[in-house]
Every structure is written in structure tokens, then in C-alpha cells.
């Protein structure tokens, strides 16, 4: 996989760490591959960090599953901290490896307060989460991992990717997060990118946002009622009731962001996340404001 150059003007500067993953999420936009690529990307990423613009605001570590790098993850983070001391580091991880408290502790040592971990949660019910994650035991390890990260005082972004299998329980998930994961820095409800598994297995997984908006709004409202930070990613404003617009972010990376013809007449285009250029189809129900 070819990595894009780190660019100070981009909102998406990423170090791709591996194509391997210990989950096999049914809607994965970047389906994992079993190849021995960790050293290859590690060496590549060292060079990329060394040549990166020094005032890069944010760098993201992604995959696959970055924690499969084991201790190399910490060497890479230490290098970033050394070379780019002011850069925030965002790790996108399924969190399972942090079920080992020592691993969470080591992350804190390496990354200190510059690190945030983004962790997807697919359901509040173990078996649903495991089905979506494509791996038995994933849920329990992820929840323990979240607790261990929190014990270390590491910032957590919780990510809920909304799909056909979990949208019915979005409000219950919000209650679960409020009660059991109240320490997360924020919760992001994310629309699916229609690419990878989400597209090829669409009959099982795909659901039009317009169908889950009521559950989404109820979940967002509940978290907001209890003063938790909550955001909506990847849902165009025209699909959201106006009172939920303040929660919606311009979340789609600039290099894969697009707007359609009807967006040209929309007065909210500048504030709107638009669409994934990578998606095979647009959402239904799009209309200009």
C-alpha cells in the first residue's frame, strides 16, 4: 500500500503500520491481509517521521491494527515525540491489546499526554460486538482495554460505526457508554464509508443513514443530556434534524472528500462533511438547504 506524503496542509496525515488485524470487522473499509509487513512499514515510517514538517499538528497511526507492532509501536511513538514534540498522536486501534495493563502503561510512558487512542465499539452486547468485529472475545478485551487506558489517564475517542447490525441499539449503547465508559474523552457516531466489505457485503451490513437517524439522534441526545462530548461523523447535514447540526463535524479527510451537483445550491455546503469520494454510491435523501 502506497502512503501519501505527510503534508502540513492536509487534515489527514497518517502512518500506515500494517495490513494485519486481529479483528475482521464485517464493514471494514480496508480489509486486513495476513502478510508479514510490520518491519517494512516500520522502516518506512521512521524515514517519514524524520522528514516530516516539524509543525505538523496531528499525526495518525493506523492500519490494520497498530498494536500488532508490539513494542515497536512505542519506539515509533518515542521517535515522533523526539522529532515532532508538538504534534498530537492519534492511534486508531481496536483496543484489545490494552487488555494487558502493562501494554497500556507502556503507551503512557512513550506517549505521555500527546497520545489519544480511537477505539471502535460496535455494540453494548458482547455477542453482537463480536459478530461485527468478526472475532470471538473481542468485546471483553476491548472493554478491559478501554478501562486500562483510562486508568493510565490516556485520552480515548470512542467510535461507533453505524451499520445494519447495530443501529437498533444505538440508544442503549449511549446509556451503556454513559454508565460504563463515562471516562472517554468523546464519542463519535460515524457513517459508513461504502467501500471494502461495507460495499461487497452490503446486503448484510449497509443501511441508509436516513433509516437510522431517529436512533442516532436519541443516542446523541442522551450523551449530551449527561454532558458527555459527542460528535457525528460522515453524515451530511441535510440528513440530520437541524437541532443536531452542532454535533456534526467536517470529518472526511480532504483527499477523499467530495460534494455532489445538488450540494452546489446548498447554503450549508461550507459547514457540511459532504461525502466519501471513495464510496460506490451516495446516500439517499440528499437535498440542498
Amino acid at each position: 500500500m502506497k502512503q501519501r506524503p505527510l503534508d502540513i496542509h492536509s487534515n489527514d496525515n497518517t502512518l500506515f503500520t500494517t495490513e494485519q488485524c486481529n479483528n475482521h470487522c464485517i464493514m471494514c473499509c480496508q480489509p486486513p491481509r495476513k502478510i508479514d509487513d510490520i518491519d517494512h512499514y516500520y522502516q518506512q515510517n521512521i524515514k517519514r517521521v524524520l522528514s516530516a514538517p516539524k509543525d505538523l499538528p496531528l499525526i495518525a497511526l493506523t492500519g490494520g491494527e497498530p498494536t500488532l507492532m508490539g513494542d515497536k509501536l512505542f519506539s515509533l511513538i518515542r521517535l515522533i515525540r523526539e522529532q515532532l514534540p508538538n504534534t498530537e498522536i492519534h492511534i486508531l486501534s481496536n483496543g484489545r491489546k490494552f487488555a494487558d495493563p502493562e501494554y497500556a502503561k507502556a503507551l503512557k510512558l512513550a506517549g505521555d499526554n500527546k497520545v489519544m487512542v480511537g477505539v471502535p465499539l460496535h455494540s453494548d452486547y458482547e455477542k453482537d460486538h463480536d459478530i461485527i468485529a468478526g472475532s470471538k472475545g473481542a468485546y471483553n478485551e476491548t472493554i478491559l482495554g478501554l478501562y486500562n487506558l483510562a486508568m493510565q489517564g490516556i485520552a480515548i475517542e470512542l467510535r461507533i460505526v453505524m451499520n445494519k447490525l447495530n443501529y437498533m441499539r444505538l440508544p442503549q449503547m449511549a446509556t451503556f457508554i454513559h454508565k460504563n465508559l463515562s471516562f472517554v474523552t468523546w464519542t463519535a457516531f460515524m457513517g459508513m464509508e461504502r467501500v471494502g466489505f461495507a460495499d461487497t457485503k452490503s446486503t448484510h451490513i449497509w443501511i441508509e443513514p436516513i433509516e437510522y437517524i431517529p436512533q442516532l439522534c436519541q443516542a446523541v441526545q442522551l450523551l449530551d443530556d449527561f454532558r458527555h462530548e459527542v460528535v457525528i461523523f460522515n453524515i451530511p447535514l441535510c440528513l440530520l434534524p437541524e437541532q443536531y447540526h452542532p454535533f456534526a463535524e467536517k470529518s472526511i479527510s480532504d483527499w477523499k472528500n467530495k460534494y455532489t451537483d445538488c450540494c452546489e445550491q446548498c447554503r450549508l455546503k461550507e459547514q457540511c462533511c459532504g461525502f466519501f469520494a471513495t464510496s460506490t454510491q451516495l446516500y439517499t435523501g440528499i437535498k440542498p438547504y
Binding site: S123, D124, Y125, E126, D128, M168, R169, Q172, F176, K179
Partner: peptide
């Protein structure tokens, strides 16, 4: 079934 899941999750 949704109540069942809630009882387990909580």
C-alpha cells in the same frame, strides 16, 4: 431479544 441483550450488557 433487545431486553435480553440489555440485561446481559448491564
Amino acid at each position: 431479544p433487545e431486553l435480553y441483550k440489555s440485561l446481559v450488557a448491564n
